[in-house]
Design a protein around this nucleic acid. Structure first.
Length: 425
DNA sequence: AATCCACAGGAAGCCCGGGAAC
DNA sequence: GTTCCCGGGCTTCCTGTGGATT
């Protein structure tokens, strides 16, 4: 093989390897062990032990901030339950649904029915009643779908546990009707029992629930407190062992990742993300070790990516205002103030055939950009020369420009005209 | 001390689209 | 289908601000 061939992949493969397997750092990975969640695991297992004794488990409501291990815990206990399920007097089945993806009454019921029908046919049991193999994802009246689901549940003597993750999304979007239906099913079922587990990272949605649903759903409640920095450190160390080559992490790396994430309401997902991104940065530059500098840069990168995401979702007029600020920045205007921004903004709108908003409104838009942290705007008094906001960009202008141009076509106003828009001092 | 600049930002009301009630 | 209501985006009109200037 040619030495120093310089191919892209050679370069990446040559140096020190950083990762053994980075998949363990991704949010999609569910770990075998969940440090600092023993109590929650134990409680959920206690509740779910009921069907092993032939009883119906209580409904459970699980609450905790993002990245506190709710979903991982539930999935973990689900796995354990499956292992011992055969010993139960009645069949035990668990269905997990994420309401972020499936969030209408119809689709929830249809998905539940389909999962059950599929499992029946896998077992070779057939549904025995000439039911169709699948419920279509659209087209049927909702009560007919419910009927199929009901029959599928009651066809076998069993305990069915339904896990509804991100249940707040479901309630906010389509109300609590499905929950009402599901929690009431038990009184009509003859062979089976249904138990609901709702997972949410916000508590406010409880206000939108019918009181009957609320009390039924929270027969048992599990709270997942945020992890502190030490706990996050433990979690990171466990995962780092699996995902990094030995000895590539500087000693300060994990504590720093943990400290950053602890400040953000103890989000383990963020901590892992930070660690992975730091590793990737080290890998890209061919470093031998991941250092705290990489972590700091990873932190900035993640923040920056978040910021660019915000810019992408800005409404058109805000983008135009922001773009005006970028243009002024490019022209090295020493103090960017509201009036200048407005003048450039007007030229920009005229050039691109956009409606021109009033000064008052643009002033508010600038304040909104300030609130989002995209720019820093502070009010200054220049005596005789009035009172205004002095604005500076908080993100790299090149990146802002690229992000905006990604979403819309903007023709720059004649560059020579820009200085004329300003009352340059 | 009075004036004045270049806005900030509050208040009220218009307009329009979407959703619920009739 | 019509009416009503609501909220968000926006305009119009307005008062307030504080230091350089007169």
């Amino acid at each position: 093989m040619e030495k120093n061939s310089g191919s892209l992949f050679d370069m990446l493969l040559r140096g020190q390897r950083i990762f053994r397997n980075r998949e363990y750092l991704r949010p999609s990975y569910t770990p075998e062990e969940l440090p600092h969640r023993r109590e929650q695991i134990h409680n959920l297992a206690r509740i779910w032990a009921a069907p092993l004794r032939g009883e119906t488990p209580s409904n459970v409501f699980i609450y905790g901030k993002p990245g506190t291990g709710k979903t991982a815990t539930v999935k973990h206990v689900m796995k354990e339950l499956e292992k011992v399920g055969g010993r139960a007097p009645k069949k035990i089945e668990v269905i997990y649904l994420n309401c972020e993806e499936i969030r209408t009454k119809y689709r929830i019921l249809a998905t539940l029915a389909n999962v059950l029908l599929e499992r029946r046919s896998e077992e070779g049991r057939g549904n025995g009643k000439g039911l169709p193999e699948q419920v279509p994802m659209t087209g049927w009246p909702t009560d007919q779908v419910y009927r199929y689901f009901f029959e599928a549940v009651d066809a076998v003597e069993q305990v069915l546990i339904i896990v509804l993750d991100e249940i707040d999304r479901l309630v906010m979007r389509s109300g609590d009707e499905v929950l009402y239906t599901l929690t009431r099913m038990n009184s009509d079922l003859t062979n089976s029992k249904v138990s609901i587990v709702g997972i949410s990272n916000n508590l406010n949605f409880m206000d939108y629930l019918d009181p009957r649903v609320r009390s039924s759903l929270s027969e048992e409640e599990l709270v997942f407190p945020p992890y502190n920095a030490l706990q996050l450190g433990d979690i990171l160390r466990k995962r780092a062992e699996m995902s990094f080559e030995e000895g590539v992490l500087d000693p300060g790396v994990i504590p720093l990742c943990a400290a950053h994430a602890a400040r953000e309401h103890g989000d383990a997902r963020r901590a892992l993300d930070l660690l992975r991104t730091a590793g990737e940065l080290a890998e890209i530059e061919g470093a031998e070790k991941v250092t705290t500098t990489h972590v700091s840069r990873a932190f900035e990168k993640i923040e920056r990516d978040k910021m660019l995401e915000v810019i992408h979702t800005l409404p058109t007029q805000s983008k135009l205002v922001l773009y005006s600020i970028v243009l002024l920045n490019e022209h090295r205007v020493p103090r960017i103030v509201t009036g200048d921004v407005y003048n450039v903004y007007c030229a920009l709108c005229r050039r691109n055939g956009q409606d021109i908003l009033t000064k008052r409104r643009v002033s508010d838009l600038i304040s909104e950009l300030d609130m989002l942290g995209i720019v820093n705007a502070r009010i200054t008094n220049k005596g005789r020369y009035g009172r205004t906001k002095e604005i500076e960009l908080n993100v790299q202008p090149i990146q802002v420009k690229a992000a905006i141009l990604d979403d819309m076509e903007i023709g720059d106003p004649d560059p020579a005209s820009i200085p004329r828009q300003l009352k340059l001092v």
